[in-house]
Design a protein around this nucleic acid. Structure first.
Lengths: 250, 250
DNA sequence: TTTACTTGTTGATCCACGTCAACGCGATTA
DNA sequence: TAATCGCGTTGACGTGGATCAACAAGTAAA
């Protein structure tokens, strides 16, 4: 039983270019500055497409690692589970972002990747990626930067979990989402959350009740309009102030 | 003003082998299975040594990134600072572990690396590393695994910060230290902490008073013997139980 | 429509950890 | 040997967020 059981894609350059054109923002798929010849090679590298329905796993913790995945459409969460059932959501991934980097080290996935809506990914067999990145320097550098940025992102989450108060965490979370939606051409201030209050809470180290109360409070304070999963940011400056309260010194 | 201002090292193979023989545990310096020819090349790659005194920075957040560092001797912390002065320690690094991966993504360091005791590092210019890893497949794979493991480690810290209680966090921290000391041939149960209570607290998302109280409590419960920075683990099973409380299901 | 189920909201109460404060110890320096 | 300083310990008290509980609002199936 292979992880990679989907239909093989067209290896025609123009098709791939069109297909990946919405995930070349700042991630792996199409590092900028490739020659046409290199583009054709990259095309060969991305072997497979795969659809993942809402609620289904892209991969499980403990499963053998074969491929890195680039989200084409949809929305994912990654999480780790403790023996007693406690869950820590380690990230939410949207179009153009990568999944599976956790599996390289032990050649086994260390977390679960679950679709929060019907989604589609490109599977990039990792041996292909390593092979091609030995030949295409741009690709190698791009991949190293992607991994490094993931580490930096994780440090940001540690900062959030270790030192921020609940309201700062939620503000940081919303501003981060807003910024990522913006980078994809969506509204920075009007979006639908794909995850539940519980999943947000797990990511932020809070309980769902606390998240819910904070949404209500932010709404009372005129920062947001909240209707279930539909969020409108009404006062982005106010949110930013919450996150980084006035410093007295310097 | 270069980051890499130390004396150039001998490029003699046997010298390097001896020199790196204590940091080839499971990290970058010497991936196992290199041919003698490859070893000589790796020798060329590791350009510089650098001493860092206790309290000094190996690099600052915001500084240009040039090199990855392998700790030869000593002990470091990495941290990120918030605008208002709050600190989050993101990790403690000991001999054989790598520093600087955070800088690859933006070509600027995103955190501070500070020596907690007089230390020595090998500086590996990153352009060298990328160049050599295109030629030595083993090295390439090793480096990718190192980065991936760092991501997995970070997820572990997120789990700790997001879902564990104070006593679980400290137990996990001590067991992790114990395991890393063991891997380096030191006692698993008897060691000196290089960091203050405040730094432990920052890493674990707790205040120093809480850390101090937990040490006292663990001592009262016969789990540890604590004399300032000198820790002896008296009941490792008890510590592990604290970390992973009896699960009812399954 | 009704039923069942998941998700979200809100209130009342609790408690783990933070805050504030005093003090002790060991190392360093005068 | 006293004075200073950084670091650690301990106590008293306060509070932010967890817990427990009730209910409301969607959503899906029949």
């Amino acid at each position: 039983m292979s992880l990679l059981h989907s239909v093989r894609t067209e290896t025609n350059l123009s098709v791939l270019k069109t297909a990946c054109s919405n995930c070349n923002l700042n991630e792996l798929c199409l590092p900028i500055g490739l020659s046409e010849e290199e583009m054709i090679r990259v095309d060969e590298m991305v072997a497979l497409r795969r659809k993942v329905r809402r609620g289904e796993h892209l991969y499980h913790a403990g499963q053998e690692f074969h491929a890195i995945y680039a989200v084409r459409t949809g929305f994912f969460k990654t999480d780790v589970l403790m023996g007693d059932g406690r869950e820590q959501v380690t990230g939410f991934q949207m179009a153009g972002e990568l999944l599976g980097l956790d599996g390289i080290g032990a050649e086994i996935h260390s977390c679960n990747a679950i679709a929060l809506e019907d989604s589609e990914v490109c599977a990039i067999p990792f041996s292909n990626l390593e092979e091609f990145s030995r030949e295409i320097v741009t690709l190698q550098q791009h991949f190293h930067k992607v991994m490094s940025r993931e580490i930096v992102r994780d440090h940001g989450v540690m900062l959030l979990l270790g030192t921020m108060r609940a309201e700062e965490r939620l503000a940081a979370f919303l501003l981060n989402l807003s910024q990522r939606f913006t980078a994809r051409g969506y509204s920075p201030a009007d979006f639908y959350l794909r995850m539940t209050r519980e999943e947000i809470g797990s990511y932020l180290g809070l309980k769902l009740e606390t998240v819910s109360r904070l949404f209500s409070r932010f709404q009372d304070e005129g920062l947001l309009s909240v209707q279930q999963k539909h969020i409108r940011i009404l006062n982005i400056v106010g949110l930013k102030k919450l996150m980084n309260p006035a410093r007295s010194g310097a």
